[in-house]
């Protein structure tokens, strides 16, 4: 598992990358009440706002961590946004991306590095 400075986690499954938000991010957001997911087959560029998360407190975005194509989204989050608080690093993944070169993931933080980043 790799981690971004935007508190996303990235997990490689075959040739796709699964993206979600970290336990820390879910905790900071508070109770999530709405999730807007991207369109499947959308081509996105690193830094694009691809999801909207609304918690009881505020709205935030999930950014595309790398360039690629959205190949699957977690529809369960539309009906059960609270899953993001229950299991952020498991069942509550947001989307899967197909990317050209998996080696770009090497630039992201390891779990230990992310823990250090959180301080």
């Amino acid at each position: 598992m790799k981690y971004t400075e935007e508190h996303e986690w990235l997990r490689v499954e075959g040739d796709v990358v699964v993206v979600g938000i970290t336990d820390h991010a879910a905790e900071q957001l508070g109770d999530v009440v709405f999730v807007e997911l991207p369109e499947v087959e959308a081509m996105v560029a690193k830094g694009d706002e691809v999801c909207v998360i609304e918690s009881v407190k505020a709205a935030s975005d999930i950014l595309a961590p790398v360039d690629g194509e959205i190949v699957e989204v977690n529809e369960a989050l539309s009906d059960t946004p609270g899953l993001v608080n229950e299991d952020p690093q498991g069942d509550a993944w947001f989307f899967k991306m197909k990317i050209d070169d998996l080696s770009v993931l090497d630039d992201f933080m390891t779990e230990d590095e992310y823990k250090e980043f959180l301080g």
Partner: peptide, 9 residues
């Protein structure tokens, strides 16, 4: 603003 229970609960 909230306690560990969280706003919803």
């Amino acid at each position: 603003v909230q306690y560990p229970m969280g706003v919803l609960k």
